[in-house]
Nucleic acid binder design. Structure first.
Lengths: 220, 220, 220, 220
DNA sequence: CATGAATGAGGTTTCATTCAT
DNA sequence: GATGAATGAAACCTCATTCAT
């Protein structure tokens, strides 16, 4: 799924694909992409060099430029590619359920599960996506879409009566995202040593009920 | 409060200090530090150059190396310096109150207030502090200390009976940090265009009561 | 008229040539050569890439190396090939006339006509041939031969009594070449927007009579 | 006379120039410029590398970028700088005389003398200045100005009655330039082995009287 | 013969850091 | 202490050329 077809194109060849014609290209594209993400995860984007990525991918330095316009483009393609996949998965999992509560649950489970499945991706997302005045334009999309999903769930929950009606909408969305994000952060900083998914249920519980005790709340 | 006391320090020249003995030093140190943070906030750490910082600070490039060991060291000193100040303030404000609820409230108010007061710091903290890999050792300290403060409040609140007793301790702490962090993130990404502090009360409310409606909760 | 006959040549495969035996080869050779000249004319030799030439010629990059030893070789072959053709034409046109005056006239007409007919060639000749410590050896041949033709005409004209006898021989030859060359230069720089040939007669007149007025000359 | 004051400026220092304050800068600027021209003359612009230039100038590679924005900029500055100087000299020498004939003579003498004095400059001018496409905008200025000077002389000569009145103006200018240019070309290609200036008088004679014999002309 | 993906040497440029003044 | 010109390592990227298919 190479997306930088700009330069040379020659995307699918014009000869009919006999066996696994484009597969070679695809393979190498993903080989490089994964190598890059691994290196980015280990070294950070700016400290990573094309040479490291090339070595990790088992290709020559120049080869990388057959698939990516620049070092920046690698990160960009990664975000475009992974964001799409991940958001698709989120949406799919959310839609498996019908009521807002289960949907929120599914979203968070899905989120943690996906990031746990691909720790390098998790590291790079946490490290490069949520900052970096650098790729902001593109990455904000990811955040924006995520917040959109959360927003829909919240609204539905309010209609269903399971979520409070007196919520500061744009705040709640950040509240959810921030919580999950930081849980992943903790996991990443710990070196991915424990089961990230196991955080899902407790986290959902916290999101729904907060940390205040029932009795204390009663007094409010 | 220069901390790289290696090179030069007390030996204040052999000429008698005419005017403001250490003050000159201190001034320039902070001038550089603030200039650096401004530049880091605008360009990102890696895209910033010593020359930009020097120009912003109104000193020569070489002068920076009289106060800082390296470019990295600037960021480091910034974190050490600001972390200390900020955490002091947090603690002080937390201690202004006695009950856990008010303390949590104060912490979050303080947090948002401090970051709003110094947007450059906010940007740099959000952008560079969490990248881990790089400055992790030192910056983790900040996070760790922050989580410690939160932890103390939580424990106190549980003793007081105002916070739930069935809380996953290490998760709750991240839950609080993540929420605040993301609220700041949103504010930074929006360009600091609104009153960050105004988020404090709604956020505390969310943390305490969660997003679930009372009636729905009753069913659990 | 491929001249790098090293690699492959007559051995036209063992399979019988089905259609147009050598024609295919020749065609592709010229296709590449013309494509190259077009690209060289547009981009300059050094800024041109094999890929551009290949695309322009409608062949694969690698195919070019079946016909040319190297990128340099393309330029070289171009000069060899075009020089031969052009010089042939010059000589032929010169020989159409008998007296030196008409021969000079014919040479210059021919020169301007040929270059006008093939603007890409003109551009490349002007840009790469008359400089470039680069291809000097080969290209000097062209210049040398051209100067030779001019020289013969001059000598003949002196015998005929139509050209001055007190001419600095090697200078006169350069004088003629330089004039024509610069006229072409002007035309090329103007983007080939006017009729180059129309310069022939006025130029010949200038060469013969100079810019001095008759009366003024009388005083010398 | 560094002209790329863009980046850093700090041109004259603010401290009073004690001895030869800016001289150091100026020196190095010209050291690099001359080294570059020498290398360009030997290798051609495109085959020259920054490293070669740096070595020739006795500075580090990076130093070059303190004085020039890019490799291209070196050539550009050279043209700007040398063109100005050379054209000044031309004009000055032209103005030493009053009548058009002497002025043309002076121009050509000056032209050949200047180029002979600085063979590297001569080589680079001949090789790179006319390539157009590349630096055209700036270099065309040189050509344009030169043609302007020639044009003025021609017009004056026509008024004075020493030059023919039936001249194709834009052609004559090219005619003069082309002749001189090619004479220099020949000298450069010969390796500067002879006295270029000695060509001036014969060339002027050719320009004025042409190659046709008086008697032949009479018959026209 | 033809292809075009792959190679990797080599070039330009940046910039943290040093050090003579 | 302060300066800022100079350094040169190191990074990114291009593209002529090769070779397996």
């Amino acid at each position: 799924m190479p997306q930088n077809l700009d330069k040379k194109d020659k995307p699918q060849k014009d000869k009919p694909d006999k066996d696994i014609p484009v597969k070679g290209k695809k393979d190498k594209y993903h080989r490089i992409l994964n190598a890059a993400i691994k290196v980015f995860a280990e070294e950070g984007f700016f400290h990573s060099t094309i040479s490291q990525i090339a070595k990790e991918a088992g290709v020559a330095d120049g080869t990388i430029y057959l698939y990516f316009k620049s070092k920046d483009d690698i990160l960009l393609q990664f975000f475009n590619f992974k964001s799409a996949r991940v958001l698709d998965r989120f949406r799919k999992d959310v839609n498996e359920a019908n009521d807002a509560g289960s949907r929120l649950e599914n979203l968070i489970h899905s989120h943690l599960r996906e990031f746990q499945k691909d720790p390098n991706m998790a590291v790079v997302f946490q490290a490069e996506a949520r900052k970096g005045r650098y790729l902001e334009n593109r990455v904000n999309n990811l955040t924006k879409t995520y917040l959109g999903i959360v927003g829909e769930i919240i609204e539905q929950g309010q209609v269903e009566g399971v979520f409070r009606k007196d919520l500061y909408f744009s705040l709640v969305k950040r509240f959810v995202l921030g919580s999950v994000d930081e849980v992943i952060n903790a996991w990443v900083n710990a070196g991915g040593k424990y089961e990230l998914s196991s955080m899902a249920d407790p986290l959902v519980d916290l999101l729904l009920r907060g940390i205040g005790s029932r009795s204390a709340m009663a007094g409010q």
